[in-house]
Design a protein around this nucleic acid. Structure first.
Length: 412
RNA sequence: GGUGGAGUCGCCUAGUGGCCGAGGGCGCACGCCUCGAAAGCGUGUGAAGAUGCAAGUCUUCCGUGGGUUCAAAUCCCACCUCCACCGCCA
């Protein structure tokens, strides 16, 4: 959430910043709800103070009558205050983070700004096949069986594809551990508080799988559980930055993506991911954001994938993000760059909701948090499609060999 | 899943209706003592919010949420977590 106290001090600055991402009207509703809450708070508190002053001993009969009447008024005032607080919190919950001034302008995907490109898309002397076609001869990726089992957008991966995918994760986890990230295998079922705290609720509710019976959510990214590591905690300044890399299976309903990327396992309901998460001092987060991006680039470069780096437009950011970089790798059959990694600086937005602070010179401050993709299977799909030959054989990047990947995937 | 016990301010603990937002110890900070340190002695030491330029004033928080009462850490109910034992499963 945003800093309400700071927003009151500088309403015009906040409104202008939030207007960039189309949230000015919500912000005005917030200020109105906040004003009402403060009014009711003042009233209720002064009544309670009166009661407290009077409750120091056994009252006489006429005193008792007066106190009963006061108690009734407090009940009403408290209910009003609670109602006003609920209204304010409802609005506050949907206010997105303040965008970073250097985040790209614009409201949607097309407004993202290309920062730079790396590598050259391959030129084929034949019609390249996509990952599904490349794997079909041996049934390495099987969407039909996935659909029979679980419905659309579920994939089986077999044999060399599965082995190579595993090698990809091992490669990434190993590399990131070398950069000071602690490996974590976290829970993937989480309570509502964790979803709210990371900013997936209330705005992303339609994209979440929920277990009604147990009141738990399946996470769409390990970010949720990694942010939960220090929820409600007080960290020491010396503990920061704290870097974690998680590996989990992730679940997304992909509501609103009907008919989009329906072929193969490009966009599926269940996928695996290595994810970076960093807790740091407020002044460190812009620099660490660049650093996380550089690790992502290092990974994609070692895989040899042609890519470009995008500065995502403010209107296209998730609610918690102040700024986001996507790496888009080349997909020859689609003939375009597609997202393979994404890293966001969420500044203190999640820390406020999750109540994560650190102590500095005796004072408590909110930490900043960042998250970024290590790798998902999408990188593997790009590998398959970029490094295929006319016979449908895929040359696996050398970087993955030490982690058990075969030299080639495909018809042999 | 069942039975029993427990959850208080960084840690340990006192506290069974009003003088308790809460005492003690440890830890920590500062001071005295000391050549310096330890020990000892003294003082201080939770968080969130409203208001205010500030000093301050006020409110809330004793696992969580409800309830009883003029008044709740304290009484009642539900839930959560932890511990022990039993059952079941890997």
């Amino acid at each position: 959430m945003i800093d309400l106290k700071a927003a009151r001090q500088d309403p015009d600055g906040y409104r202008a910043a939030l207007a960039r991402r189309g949230a000015a009207a919500d912000f005005d509703r917030l200020l109105a709800a906040d004003a009402s809450w403060r009014e009711h708070t003042e009233k209720a508190e002064s009544l309670r103070a009166e009661q407290k002053r009077a409750s120091k001993g056994k009252p006489g009969p006429e005193e008792l009558a007066r106190l009963k009447e006061l108690s009734a008024r407090i009940e009403i005032a408290t209910a009003d205050q609670a109602q006003a607080a609920m209204l304010r919190d409802q609005v506050l919950a949907v206010i997105p983070n303040l965008p970073d001034p250097t985040a790209a302008d614009g409201m949607d995907e097309e407004d993202a700004q290309v920062l730079h490109t790396w590598g050259e898309p391959p030129v084929f002397g034949f019609a390249p096949r996509d990952h599904l076609e490349l794997s079909s001869a041996r049934g390495w990726i099987d969407m039909a069986r996935g659909a029979r089992l679980s419905g659309s957008r579920f994939a089986y991966r077999f044999g060399d594809v599965a082995v190579t995918e595993f090698a990809l994760y091992q490669f990434v986890l190993s590399k990131l551990r070398g950069k000071g990230f602690m490996l974590v295998l976290p829970p993937i079922l989480v309570g509502e508080q964790a979803m709210y705290g990371t900013g997936f609720l209330p705005t992303e509710e339609s994209n979440l799988y929920r277990l009604e019976k147990d009141d738990l959510y399946l996470t769409g990214t390990s970010e949720v559980a990694l942010a939960g590591i220090h929820a409600g905690e007080r960290l020491e300044e010396a503990d920061l930055p704290a870097r974690y890399v998680g590996f989990t299976t992730n679940f997304r309903r992909e509501a609103g993506a009907a008919g989009k990327d329906t072929r193969g396992m490009f966009r599926v309901h269940q996928f695996d991911k290595a994810e970076m998460f960093v807790y740091c001092l407020p002044e460190q987060s812009p620099e660490i954001h660049e650093q996380v991006l550089s690790y992502e680039e290092e990974i994609v470069q070692e895989l040899g994938l042609p890519y470009r780096v995008m500065n995502i437009a403010v209107g296209d950011l998730g609610a918690p993000a102040a700024k986001k970089y996507d790496i888009e790798a080349w997909f020859p059959v689609q003939e375009r760059y597609r997202e393979v990694t994404s890293c966001s600086n969420t500044t203190d937005y999640q820390a406020r909701r999750l109540n994560i602070k650190f102590r500095r010179e005796g004072k408590l401050e909110f930490v900043h948090t960042l998250n970024g993709t290590g790798a998902t299977a999408r990188a593997l799909l790009s590998i398959m499609e970029n490094f295929q030959d006319e016979g449908g054989k895929v040359a696996v990047p050398k970087a993955l060999r030490p982690f058990g990947a075969p030299e080639f995937i495909g018809k042999l």
